[in-house]
Computed example of a mutant assay.
Amino acid sequence: MFAFDTQQALGFLVSQTASIEAQVYEIQYPDIQYPALLPVDTSANPWAKSVTFFSTDKVGQADWFNHQAKDIPLADVERAQHDRPIEMAAIGYRYTLQELGQAMMVPGTNLSADRAAAAVRAYEEFMDGLALRGVPPNGVVKGWTGLINDPNVTAGLVLNDGSGASTLWADKTPDQILRDINALLTGVYQGSLTVEMADTLLLPVARFTALADTPRSGFSDTTILEYLRRNNTYTAITGAPLTIRAVRGLENAGAGNAARMVAYRRDPQVVRLHLPMPHQFLAPSPSGPLTFDVPGIFRTGGVEIRRPKAFRYGDGI
């Protein structure tokens, strides 16, 4: 007869968790969007209450000056302090004494990593929602916004010169669609007095797919998307490729739940996701007479757009 007690079961679970964690943290989830969309900053102390940063803006303009004058034009730097709170969230998994006992009966048996993988998946989905909209899937609101809905970013409707005075790309010609996109990119450049240039364009999945499927014209074997990659304001000025991505959640991110496109510069000086403590599992512990929990915790400050002029939203597409 095989006998065991709670301490043996706990010791068995502890011995298994290191291997389980190594497996699940190596899993890549291709439909998790945020790591490719913005820089993730893990540099802060994991237990910090907040992250402090300073934004600066240069003021002053050179002007003509008489050598006998005393009111020389002066330049200065305006500096503002900002504090970003860091909050904790959690997701773990559980085993029962019966499950551990059955696994211990067969020497060399390893516990499945499925539950740990499910916990990590839940963490990634939480962070994805937080990064994009500031609201994770569970809907608990902290008053944060995200990459696609920051109120400090300039947003506006695209031109309503489609058929029937429509703003929708479905009612526009390829030329009009390309015009809308380049107007958004140019808006970042001009709106920042040529300081900022958007190197990334985010599109709703359906709009991205339509651009990839629709010919540039009736006489072309090039799609609108292929043409756009070669012919856009950013590439024309810098010679560098424009990053274009399809992103879930943009279908109703605009004003009045309209579809939205986003142009921005993907740079940690412009935008970052604060994640001082990425998800980690803690040591297993008994949580009841017959249950053992493996807690998982993480701490984040959400998305911080430091330079809103390097962003622009285009709605109604």
Rank of each mutant, 00 (worst) to 15 (best):
V205N: 12
A210R: 12
T209K: 14
T209D: 14
F219L: 12
A212I: 10
T222P: 08
D199L: 08
A212R: 08
V195F: 09
V205L: 10
L225A: 00
L225D: 01
A206D: 01
T222M: 13
R207A: 15
F219T: 12
L201W: 12
M197V: 06
A212P: 11
I224H: 06
M197Q: 15
T194W: 15
M197F: 07
S220V: 13
T222Y: 10
D221N: 10
P204S: 08
A198H: 11
D221F: 06
F219H: 10
A210D: 13
L225I: 01
T209A: 14
F208E: 00
F219Y: 10
E196K: 14
S220Y: 13
L202N: 04
E226K: 02
M197N: 02
E196D: 14
D213G: 07
F208I: 01
L201D: 07
D199W: 12
R207F: 13
L201F: 10
L201I: 09
F208N: 02
L202F: 11
L203M: 13
T194L: 15
A212M: 10
P215G: 02
F208G: 01
R216N: 05
T223V: 04
D213N: 15
A198K: 09
T200I: 14
S217H: 02
G218T: 13
L201K: 09
L211H: 06
T200Q: 03
A210K: 08
T214H: 02
S217C: 03
R207G: 09
A206Q: 03
R216P: 02
T222Q: 14
A198Y: 12
D213S: 14
E196P: 01
I224C: 04
A210C: 05
L211Q: 08
S217Y: 05
D221W: 08
T209L: 04
F208L: 00
D221M: 10
P215L: 04
T214N: 00
T194N: 15
L201C: 08
L225T: 03
T222G: 06
F219C: 03
L211E: 02
I224S: 00
V205C: 11
L201E: 04
A210W: 07
T200G: 09
T222I: 14
V205S: 09
V205P: 14
A206H: 00
D199A: 07
V195M: 07
V205D: 14
M197P: 01
A210Y: 08
D221H: 06
F219Q: 11
E226T: 04
I224V: 15
T209M: 07
G218V: 06
V195A: 15
T209Y: 12
A198N: 13
T194Y: 15
P204V: 01
A212L: 05
S220Q: 14
D199H: 09
G218K: 13
V195Q: 13
L203S: 05
L211D: 02
F208D: 01
E226C: 01
P215R: 03
A206W: 00
L203K: 04
M197R: 09
D213H: 07
F219V: 13
R216E: 15
V195T: 10
A212H: 03
S217I: 04
T214L: 00
D213F: 05
F219A: 11
P204W: 03
D221C: 06
L225W: 05
P215M: 07
G218I: 13
S220E: 15
G218N: 11
